[in-house]
Simulated scan of single mutants.
Amino acid sequence: MRAIWKGAVSFGLVSVPVKLYAATESKDISFRQVHAKDGGRIKYQRVCSIDGEEVPYADIAKGYETEDGEMVILDDSDMAELPASSSREISVEKFVPSEQIDPMLFEKSYYLEPEKSGAKPYALLRQALEEADRMALVTVSLRNRMSLAVLRVRDDVIVLQTMMWPDEIRKADFASVDTADAKPAEVKMAKMLVETLAGDFEPDEYEDDYREAVEALVKAKIEGGEVKAAPKERKTGGEVVDLLAALQRSVEAAQSARGGGSQAAEAADEAADSEDADKPARRTTAKKAAAKKATAKKAPARKAAAKKTASKTAAKKAARKAS
């Protein structure tokens, strides 16, 4: 395992240097959305809902939507002013009886490993927690945010469990079930059923049947040759094709904000017409350029031929004079 955090547990004047490791991992089966025809992955673009343009990460900010639908945009400077902490300290606030912590508050679990210099105080804290049957209520800064957590002992290792804040636990928003009408004989039979099914929790007795079934299904399809090679992804040219339309929408949005009319549509039509009109002109210019190149290539060839003819004529005249 790789440590995700380093710091120290502090209680009173005692400091225990520790490393933090994730104690759990999700093994849920995850599927990718693909094109059923060829197995290509489905991509999602970050598109602005107002102008329809794809937005790069650099232009994405945090927005807080109010209850009445207003959007408040927060930039990096705003976020820097928020009360956040990067402390490397797990500060023990108090030691509370274990039964006082509602398991519903627990969120994520981490293992605490002591550094070499903190082995002895770590062992002392572990023993104290076990013998007192208490949990250490602590505050810790993870991912630049202060969290409430507890320290407890599991299999001779101190475990840190982050907690939900009390106001994050929702109340059961429905009427309580009235059991006043239950007959004594029914209550007695229910207790007998509980006693009949009573037992100890053995984690190894339970398995994730769904995950095992999916893995077996995938394995059978691979062995049966029902598998498609992942196709190479091709770059799309959508941003080039839709550039004119995107520009038109942007201009229309800007003009509507200023009270403009249909100038954007007219400009787009003119741009399209000028582009179409420019195509024949480009072809004509290209033909003229090609003709000039061909003429330029032929000119040296003609000069060379003329020089050869002149030298031959001079040679014949010299031969006649010699004879």
Rank of each mutant, 00 (worst) to 15 (best):
P203F: 00
A185P: 13
G238N: 09
A220C: 08
R234W: 01
E233G: 10
V227W: 11
E212Y: 00
D181G: 15
V194E: 11
K221D: 11
R249F: 05
S250L: 08
D204I: 03
M189P: 02
E239V: 00
V251Y: 03
E233H: 04
K188R: 12
I222R: 11
G238W: 00
A185C: 09
E215S: 14
E226V: 04
V218R: 07
K219Q: 14
D208P: 04
K235T: 03
T196G: 06
L243P: 03
L193D: 06
T236R: 06
E202K: 04
A185W: 13
G225P: 10
V218E: 01
V241G: 00
A254H: 02
A185Y: 11
A230F: 14
A190C: 15
E195R: 08
D181T: 15
A230V: 14
F201Q: 00
K219S: 15
V177T: 05
M192C: 04
G224T: 03
K232H: 09
S250W: 09
K188L: 14
Y210C: 14
A190L: 15
E207C: 01
T236K: 03
V240E: 04
L243M: 07
V251N: 01
Y206P: 00
K235W: 00
E215R: 13
D200P: 07
M189S: 09
L197V: 03
V194A: 13
V177E: 04
V187L: 14
Q255M: 06
F201R: 05
T236N: 10
V240P: 03
P184L: 09
D242S: 05
E215M: 15
E215A: 14
E195S: 10
T196D: 10
A213V: 04
D181P: 09
M189D: 13
E226T: 04
A254I: 07
K219M: 15
D242L: 14
V241T: 04
E215K: 11
D181F: 14
K188G: 07
G224L: 07
K221H: 12
E239T: 02
D181V: 12
E233C: 02
L217W: 03
V241H: 02
R249A: 07
Q255Y: 09
A216I: 10
T196R: 13
D209S: 12
E252L: 07
D242M: 12
V241I: 05
Q248F: 07
G225E: 11
M192E: 13
